[in-house]
Write a protein that binds this DNA or RNA. Structure first.
Lengths: 232, 232
DNA sequence: TATTAAGTGGGGTTG
DNA sequence: CAACCCCGCTTAATA
């Protein structure tokens, strides 16, 4: 990896197009060919390019311009004045991130706890194919026996309503002799989404934030063997 | 800005949760409080935190652990062995990125050129409110005088079809005495999307890739004054 | 301040 | 390869 601190300007052309006027910034060139340009703010680079396959240097009036190429993409960096340069060796084989509290785990937890949580829906299947993509959970109303498609989200947005409506429509079309309703289950549901859902006949279920503790506790109970986590 | 090359491990807890085992990586601390951890690959940090508001250092067995805080978030970095450290001054006032070939410009271009391009639609309005969100362009069929809602996209996906169908339905509901049709105009429309659109009675218009050159040319013509771009 | 929509979105998974 | 969907999405514009 190479770090260059320089007064630089950038032009990118590829999927979109952008230009960046001269300013002192950090240029980061990783060994996998990734280029990124950082300024003093934010965690994202202001300009970047991945999977570079070619490289070219031109010098004019003692000013270097580097152009990096890939399929249909080009990133042109003019280094007006270089202040610092560092070579850093980062070894391969990074063990990588392990995540928890993901939507997948939320879905798993809800599948186990939907009936307890709502008191009226009994789960039947996960990732049930609707004909227009799989719905997260298929359940049924215990009293009315109507089938219920449940879309699980961390944060429900208006587009979530559109999504569940599509699934319900697809299910109705595919099984014309059965009844279907739609439910959104989310940790957070904004007012506007709530109103929109109600107007479309979609019910909203708010999942308590404590789900993750409950999930972790149950996981730990199932594994009688102590995990590495318990020891640490 | 501070760059630290270190053998480090990370724990994040906030909107989600994640852990990163020990490995030699780069820690980047920007003056705006942004933390990011990079390995040797990719342009994105593997772990990060923005808008940090607090900081704490603990030392155990000669090993430093830094914990960064923000509302409901915490990033804990244990620096097992520090190899390098660099302080870099990046001035504020970065002029920032200017983009072109954006969807906004595409929409502007199409508004000017829809009639020329299709030979049958005449534009009437941009960002026209349908009752279910604004549609990009409202036009009319020159021959039949039917109103046409046009959704502009760079890449049209099946979801785009659902979107334009919703708009057309909303318009029909709001103006029951008028006729409406839906059109998707995009640079790229995959087969499945094309088929789906046809089945739903939505017409597809493919925008030629040359639109951006035409757009730039016309912009230049309008401004008789030479721009900074022309000079450079 | 909250909401919406675009992004050079990225990235993984499935058919 | 295309389609689909989640992401600790981020970020900018807008009401």
């Amino acid at each position: 990896m190479k770090i260059i601190i320089s007064d630089l300007s950038v032009k990118y052309s590829g999927r979109g197009e952008s230009t960046l006027p001269r300013h002192k910034r950090m240029l980061l060139i990783k060994d996998d060919g990734t280029i990124s340009i950082h300024n003093g703010k934010g965690y994202k680079p202001i300009n970047y390019m991945m999977r570079t396959s070619g490289f070219e240097e031109t010098i004019e009036n003692n000013v270097k311009t580097w152009t990096f190429y890939a399929d249909d993409e080009a990133l042109e960096i003019t280094l007006h004045e270089i202040y610092e340069e560092h070579i850093i060796d980062l070894p391969d084989g990074d063990p990588g991130l392990t995540r928890s509290r993901t939507e997948d785990q939320l879905q798993e937890w809800l599948y186990e706890n939907l009936e307890k949580l709502t008191g009226k829906y009994r789960v039947r299947a996960r990732e049930y194919e609707t004909g227009d993509g799989p719905v997260d959970i298929l359940a049924e109303n215990i009293e009315t026996e109507v089938n219920v498609a449940v879309e699980v989200k961390r944060i429900a947005a208006p587009e979530t309503v559109a999504q569940i409506v599509r699934y319900v429509d697809a299910l109705k079309e595919f099984y014309p002799d059965r009844k279907f309703e739609g439910v959104i289950a989310a940790l957070e549901i904004k007012d506007k989404t709530f109103d929109l859902a109600r107007r479309r006949g979609i019910e909203c279920v708010v999942i308590p934030a404590s789900w993750s503790e409950d999930y972790a506790f149950n996981k730990a109970m199932k594994n009688s063997e102590p995990t590495l986590f318990d020891i640490l």
